[in-house]
Design a protein around this nucleic acid. Structure first.
Lengths: 138, 138
DNA sequence: CTAGACCTTCACCCCGACGTCAACGCCAGC
DNA sequence: GCTGGCGTTGACGTCGGGGTGAAGGTCTAG
């Protein structure tokens, strides 16, 4: 299998594959004409890379999984190094979610407070209180 | 107050202030010598910008708040446009948290499964099962 | 007088994961 | 033998957001 076919079958581009190879992530054998030659196993490696990428892993973080498969293990996450990456990623996600949630709560509070202030002003405002149900914006 | 003092008092840099001005976000009056002249009100605007930036707002998203203050309102979020930005940000954060949480759950499942597979192999493996309680990593 | 703060403009940086040429080689079909 | 479609390499561009750096000049405070 040549680079174009592999790219097509994995739903990526030849440019990406050459990039992976340049990073030492997905080495390719070469035919006599200099063309890269891939097999089904390479397709597995590539799929592993892409699944993890879709989960938000950086390219470097997929390396242990790829190496694990290359070493003949049944799955990319059969090796301790891969499990470590999983754990690190989980911690990273947890931290991110915690940070975002905290900001979210603060903002929700600010919004509620600002809306309350607006409504209070509207109610105590000039003689012609705006009708809340007919706001033109929104 | 000149640019250096304002920067110091707001905990930012003169470069950033000139950048804000170039974006039309924090215009400055000029003295006869061409120097930018700021007052306490500008410090308020700047603090508003920085607070929102710390919450993860983009510069453009802080604009309604700044304009609201410039218009003489008591707070940056006293205007409908600011409230809209709040709501949009909340929705954005919620979407982000949902996406990350989903990935987190999938990964946690993968990790658990991979660990179970490893332990099963260790138990059914060669005659000398590794002691789970003395894992050197961790 | 001189150091430091200020002015302007233009360019550059950071990050990752590629995309986009350019200029060439290889090979199948007609 | 020629065209078209693959393949090769390397160098450079892109995206986005929020700035930073340098050069070269002016102004001010002590």
């Amino acid at each position: 299998m040549r680079i174009g076919e592999l790219a097509r079958r994995a739903g990526t581009t030849t440019r990406a594959l050459r990039y992976y190879e340049s990073r030492g992530l997905l080495p390719a054998r070469r035919g006599g004409n200099g063309y890269r030659a891939y097999d089904e196993e390479d397709l597995r490696l590539l799929r592993q890379i892409r699944v993890l990428q879709d989960f938000g892993f950086e390219l470097e973080e997929t390396r242990p999984f790829v190496e694990c498969l290359q070493a003949g293990h049944p799955a990319g996450d059969s090796c301790p190094a891969s499990l470590e990456v999983y754990r690190a990623k989980l911690a990273e996600l947890d931290a991110m979610v915690a940070r975002l949630s905290e900001v979210r709560e603060v903002l929700a509070g600010q919004l509620a407070q600002a809306e309350a202030a607006r409504d209070a002003l509207a109610g105590a405002g000039p003689g012609e209180p705006r009708c809340e149900l007919v706001r033109t914006g929104e």
